[in-house]
Design a protein around this nucleic acid. Structure first.
Lengths: 195, 195
DNA sequence: GATTTCATGTAAGACGTTACATGATTCA
DNA sequence: TGAATCATGTAACGTCTTACATGAAATC
């Protein structure tokens, strides 16, 4: 009997927020946790089985006429208790540390064609802008709903994180680009120092 | 013959900057790329062998009296060409997307003891402050060296990235903490909107 | 008629972390 | 005497991504 991993708790947490089928959960994950905890179908389905084995969720088959039957899962009392315990526990010793290809390329930029580096940095900033736009849309949707529940605020807070991170990426790009495109003597030497 | 992965290019890039033994490279990686591309010994040594097989680096045994002999590697012309080609190529389709346990916990915060969430957020911000302090020290060391070479500027730029990201994490924590510790009606409703 | 949506899985491979394994020398 | 430094690797394990595999119904 497999032991729970972070992915197990992610699925359990999503289930605790909204019961649903694997298909539903994938969709929900996509517009919520995907920004800070991506989840793929091939991870999800085994985890649902896993949750049932643990007694942390129960699945019920719902028969449908116009669509294929589906198995709807919901968290059990034991599951909720396990989720609470895991969340309250001091820390998750962050396994894979975060990697950043663009920063790596910047670090090794001396071996690149300068304009290529600039292009890639601009592309990266553009992606960050798009990610930020998506997250702003998420926040817009949250803010346009009536009730100010704790859960709503927390979803909002987690989206804000992505927005601030994307902002930092954009700001970084704007800060360093001028120092890279021109050669040393063309820049009026004003390296970023605040922050 | 194994194909090159990002880790291969990381090691090659480090070697291109400073030839040295596996041991040297680990040390160099620790104070440079580790912030945006962590590298462990168990990845490094196989990669060095790999680079030799590819003809991208050559190792030479250096005999030492007071310390164990070491094998010093340096990038070949072919290796430098391969590095340049890889760096100039449009993009690295970022494999593992970045995951953030603390944001995940925030998202699921409704199932947590509020003070526990606050504690974990504060701890996380504290780690970010320490990371930022380390990176500021790195920049201090860079700035205190004489020459303003392109390579030095690029190292500086990549360190700046970590500083801005850490800053965003700290700012986020300060933004959201007041909204979580108190219950809904105790906060004077001023959700972050700039950025 | 073609594409998207609904629906659920499996398999193979790539990548990364942790622990295991060893051993001499220098420094406090 | 004990810890840190120099020095190089292997093995097991866990996790994540990509591709494979299938199929009906709804929508354009």
């Amino acid at each position: 009997m497999v032991t729970p991993s972070v992915a197990t708790y992610v699925v359990l947490g999503l289930l605790a927020k909204h019961p649903g089928s694997g298909y539903d959960i994938v969709a929900f994950a996509e517009r919520s946790v995907s920004f800070f905890w991506p989840l793929s179908r091939s991870q999800l389905y085994p985890e649902l089985t896993h949750l049932e084995e643990l007694g942390w969720a129960t699945g019920t088959v719902i028969e449908q006429d116009r669509y294929p039957n589906k198995r709807v899962y919901e968290a059990t009392a034991d599951g909720l208790a396990a989720l609470r315990a895991w969340l309250d526990a001091p820390a998750i010793p962050q396994k894979q540390r975060t990697r950043d290809p663009v920063v790596l390329k910047t670090f090794l930029g001396a071996f690149m064609t300068p304009s290529r580096l600039a292009d890639q940095l601009r592309d990266n900033a553009e992606e960050a802008r798009q990610r930020r736009a998506k997250l702003r849309a998420v926040i817009g949707r949250i803010d346009s709903t009536e009730a100010d529940t704790p859960s709503r605020r927390l979803s909002r807070a987690s989206a804000r994180y992505g927005i601030l991170q994307a902002g930092a990426t954009i700001a970084w790009t704007e800060e360093i680009l001028p120092h890279l495109e021109l050669s040393a003597d063309q820049v009026s030497a004003k390296p970023g120092s605040a922050d």
